[in-house]
Amino acid sequence: MPKLRTTNPDVTYSLTLAALQASADVYQLYFGAGEGAVDPETGAFKIPAKPQAQTRALLLVLVDGGQMLPIYFPHVSLLGSDAISFDPDNLLEFPLKATILAGSDGSLGDIDAFAAVAA
């Protein structure tokens, strides 16, 4: 009789977000720049030659009619994932890949129960 094995492969969860605001905060996430990327004298944003993913917390609130579902990830690695979208009829879009990281307790985040949307 053949032996059966169960494997538990490593899984990486990620999602792509489209940042629609052209600001130093979005540039920092998209281009992978740390603190101090804005020149204090000129106000110019310095694009780094070697991007570093930025770690932030991420809260998603999914709304369906009169219900919402909050999903919280305390540790997310963010970095630009594709080309900036330049569409004259729409907004600029800075695509960011958010890779969900494990927290100090080993969990990825929290999903609360569906809740009613406040009127």
Score class of each variant (00 low, 15 high):
97 K>L: 11
31 F>R: 13
66 G>T: 10
80 G>C: 11
31 F>N: 09
58 L>P: 13
16 T>L: 06
22 A>R: 06
99 T>N: 07
17 L>G: 12
64 D>L: 12
62 L>V: 15
32 G>M: 01
101 L>T: 02
19 A>C: 05
72 Y>N: 09
65 G>M: 09
107 S>M: 13
49 A>F: 02
45 F>T: 06
101 L>R: 09
110 D>R: 14
65 G>C: 14
64 D>G: 06
92 L>A: 11
53 A>K: 12
109 G>Y: 15
64 D>A: 15
50 K>I: 06
111 I>P: 02
51 P>C: 12
85 S>Q: 08
40 P>F: 07
26 V>Q: 06
59 L>W: 00
8 N>G: 08
111 I>Y: 03
94 F>P: 05
93 E>P: 03
32 G>K: 12
118 A>C: 00
113 A>V: 15
22 A>P: 01
65 G>V: 13
109 G>R: 11
41 E>I: 00
89 D>M: 04
71 I>W: 00
12 T>P: 06
113 A>I: 02
51 P>L: 07
110 D>Q: 10
110 D>L: 09
53 A>S: 08
26 V>D: 12
42 T>R: 05
29 L>M: 15
8 N>H: 05
7 T>I: 10
24 A>I: 00
49 A>I: 04
13 Y>A: 06
99 T>I: 13
35 E>P: 01
94 F>L: 12
103 G>C: 05
69 L>P: 05
13 Y>K: 07
25 D>V: 02
98 A>G: 11
23 S>P: 00
96 L>N: 09
25 D>I: 01
21 Q>Y: 04
56 R>V: 15
113 A>P: 03
15 L>N: 13
37 A>P: 05
110 D>N: 05
102 A>E: 09
14 S>V: 02
1 M>C: 03
